[in-house]
Amino acid sequence: MSGAGYDVVVDVDEEGDLGHTDLQEDLEFHSSNFTDTAPNARKLPGNSSSGLPAPATSGGSSSKRFLWTLSFYAQFFDVDTSSVLSRCWAALYPRANFLDVLEGNPDLYGPFWIATTVVFILFIGGTISQYLAETGKQAFAYDFTLLSGAAGLIYGYTLFIPIILFLALKYFGSESANLLECWALYGYSNLIWIPVALISWSPITILNLVFVGVGFGLSVAFLLRNLYPVLSATDKQTSKVLLVLVVVLHAALAVAIKVLFFAHNSPAAKDKTPETGS
């Protein structure tokens, strides 16, 4: 006999007499409750039935990050080489919105090393440009103010312009503004200045103008394409003003690069031969 998940074996004689069995009249069957949690069983941390959150030590990072700890800043550099390279390629050859490429994980590793590379290449390119301009005129001397000037220009632009833009967006009520994304966007936009600096050291002024102009056009188009959805979150008039401001500031960067590093007839490249008294 089987029923409700229980099997009982009884002996039945030929006449079908059930009188001599081991079953008692008061025998009762009770349903098992194996699926219920035992009263003394230990609940797992973070069980939804308990209504309590998981302990701080279970899952994820339990350490708090403060401004004065290295772990706070390390999280902004937590990116692998393949991600950085894919973001560099997306900056040079944009096919999708760069903020989508970041996938909600903007980094400062790529922007820092891109800016550092631009600084050193501007110094080297500017030095070669000066050397070619002064060949045969006087003994050439390295001008290390070019290095400090390049560092101040590139680091200052990449650091402070995104902060100004972020504060302006917040002031005008944009909820989609993100400072890290602004830093990443401006940092990766500097990538175009690496090839420009590598080829703009020639003494041909018009050629340098073309190279710097192409670099400005590509980088400002990259910025406008990716900043427009954020800027359009403000009112129409404000978004236009901010777009013009982005273009003007970036044009100022391009002019500064041309004048300070790759211009032979500019005020920054005047003949520095000391005057001799009569």
Rank of each mutant, 00 (worst) to 15 (best):
V246C: 12
I194T: 09
I204A: 08
V241H: 13
F216W: 00
I194K: 01
A252R: 05
T238E: 11
P203S: 06
K236W: 06
S232W: 07
A233P: 11
N226A: 02
F222T: 02
V248G: 11
V210I: 13
F216P: 00
A197I: 03
G213I: 08
G215D: 03
L218H: 01
P203C: 00
N208Q: 04
T238P: 06
F216V: 01
W193R: 09
L242F: 13
K236A: 15
F222Q: 00
S232A: 11
L209S: 08
D235Y: 10
G213H: 06
V212I: 13
I204W: 10
A197F: 09
T205Y: 06
V214C: 01
G213A: 07
V212C: 08
V241M: 06
L224P: 05
A221K: 12
P203H: 05
V241S: 09
A233L: 07
N226Q: 04
I194S: 09
A233M: 15
A251F: 06
Q237H: 03
I204Q: 14
A252I: 12
A197W: 00
K240D: 15
F222M: 07
S239R: 04
A197G: 06
W193N: 07
T205M: 05
F216N: 01
L249T: 06
A252V: 06
F216Y: 03
S219T: 02
I206E: 10
L224G: 01
A233T: 14
L218I: 03
I204H: 08
S200L: 01
N208M: 05
L245M: 13
V246Q: 07
G217Q: 08
A197Y: 01
L242Y: 12
P229G: 07
L245I: 09
P229T: 05
G217T: 05
V196S: 11
T205W: 05
L249C: 08
S202I: 14
L223N: 02
L249E: 03
G213S: 14
V247H: 05
K236M: 15
V196F: 15
A252E: 11
V244R: 06
F211M: 04
L207S: 09
L231S: 15
V230D: 13
R225L: 11
V244I: 11
L224D: 02
T234F: 13
L207I: 13
I204K: 06
H250Y: 14
V214Y: 01
W193T: 03
L223M: 08
I199V: 15
V214P: 01
A221N: 07
L218C: 05
G217W: 04
L198E: 07
V248M: 10
S232R: 12
V230G: 02
L223F: 04
L209T: 05
S200A: 15
R225S: 08
A251S: 12
V220P: 02
L209A: 11
L223W: 01
P195C: 10
L198W: 07
H250Q: 15
Y228R: 01
K236D: 14
S202H: 14
V244T: 10
P195V: 11
P203Q: 03
V210P: 01
Y228F: 03
L245W: 10
